[in-house]
């Protein structure tokens, strides 16, 4: 397995001052180069995330998660990253899953985290599970792939795959965009089981069912 220093973990954060420090601290403690993109937060997310081994980029205005991830990815590329991992800022991912994702990159271009591949989904309500299942079915129909999870924010890809995966959807539709680009560019993709912890905080920050309508609008009507 590759060393941890050539792996850049990109964390997009918007108003996450409460939890960002512990999330970033955990990832940085593993020896990964961490790139935090503060997406124009109104709180002191950027200051909270600042620590040794962590680069904090700041969007002057709020653009959306897709845009923030792409900024982080481009910065990681300029710093010579070999592997790029995207990680959620709200603390729902665990950094123990990162080595498995990166290990999968030895044989694949892209490794997508999946909540429904054996590992636990902690703290999700029945309603949440149903919503995720529905989203997965819909997502598979749209992307033409057969995945077990729709849009898990925890994924890893080789730097060589990054140009083909460049995100142009500024907001949440970037996840569907990514799947489409994986498929059309013919990259080798694999799913890796990951643990997702649903905390009160992450649920509040997360995407509700109604948000799906806006995401679908973005995906279909916002030319990219």
């Amino acid at each position: 397995m590759a060393g941890t220093s050539d792996t850049h973990v990109v964390i997009a954060a918007f108003n996450e001052a409460q939890v960002i420090r512990s999330v970033v601290g955990e990832v940085a403690a593993q020896g990964y180069a961490v790139v935090v993109v503060d997406d124009g937060s109104h709180d002191d997310t950027a200051a909270s995330a600042r620590m040794p081994g962590v680069t904090v980029l700041r969007h002057a205005v709020n653009l959306g998660q897709g845009a923030a991830l792409q900024t982080g990815i481009e910065y990681a590329m300029r710093r010579g990253a070999r592997y790029i991992v995207t990680f959620d800022a709200d603390g729902q991912h665990s950094c123990e899953d990162i080595p498995e994702l990166v290990a999968a990159l030895a044989t694949h271009d892209v490794a997508l985290g999946s909540r429904f591949l054996g590992k636990a989904v902690v703290g999700a309500s029945r309603r949440r599970r149903l919503l995720l299942r529905t989203a997965t079915t819909l997502s598979n129909r749209m992307s033409g792939m057969t995945l077990t999870d729709a849009h898990c924010g925890l994924r890893a890809f080789r730097a060589s795959a990054a140009p083909a995966l460049a995100i142009t959807q500024n907001r949440m539709a970037h996840a569907s965009e990514l799947l489409r680009k994986i498929r059309t560019s013919g990259l080798a993709v694999v799913e890796v089981p990951v643990t997702v912890k649903y905390t009160e905080h992450s649920m509040r920050k997360g995407q509700g069912g109604l948000q799906a309508i806006r995401i679908l609008f973005d995906y279909f009507f916002r030319p990219s």
Binding site: V56, L57, R58, H59, A60, V61, L63, T71, E74, Y75
Partner: peptide
């Protein structure tokens, strides 16, 4: 915005 963020970090 992206260019500014990256430049500042660099």
């Amino acid at each position: 915005t992206r260019e500014m963020a990256i430049l500042k970090a660099e």
